[in-house]
Amino acid sequence: MTRKQKRLSVIFGALAFLGAATSLTFYALGQKASYFYLPNELQAANLQPGQRIRLGGLIEKGTIVRGQGTDVAFGVTNAGSSVKVFYTGILPDLFREEQGVITEGSFEPDGTFKADSVLAKHDENYMPRELADSLKDKGVWQETTQ
């Protein structure tokens, strides 16, 4: 190989690598990014069972039901819509009725939402931003000032 050919092959290799990395990144973004929904948006969203989403809202009052062991079910609500969520595991410290919550998981074929992670707001003034925005838009949640 001449020097020029060598250099070309190196440049070509680097470009091929970058191309592969780029396509992998965008493939992964399409596959692995999960969309965020509020309960009242689910109707229009028309989700397939098994599709991963993040579901946010307020924990509906009086709906937290503890089952066997660490099973728990609760309603996530906003603007009059409500979705029942099933979860197994330890709930976050700040999981309380009428507090903001974000759950991540997917719908079962029977229409129930099975969450594999539950995030509550992390301190008393913090609300996940996408949740706060959506709730504020709909007038459900007011920003509290200290």
Binding site: A28, L29, A33, S34, Y35, R54, E104, E130, D133, S134
Partner: peptide, 10 residues
């Protein structure tokens, strides 16, 4: 305007 999250799987 869609809200998405990119997490550990990505």
């Amino acid at each position: 305007g869609d809200k998405i999250s990119v997490g550990a799987p990505f």
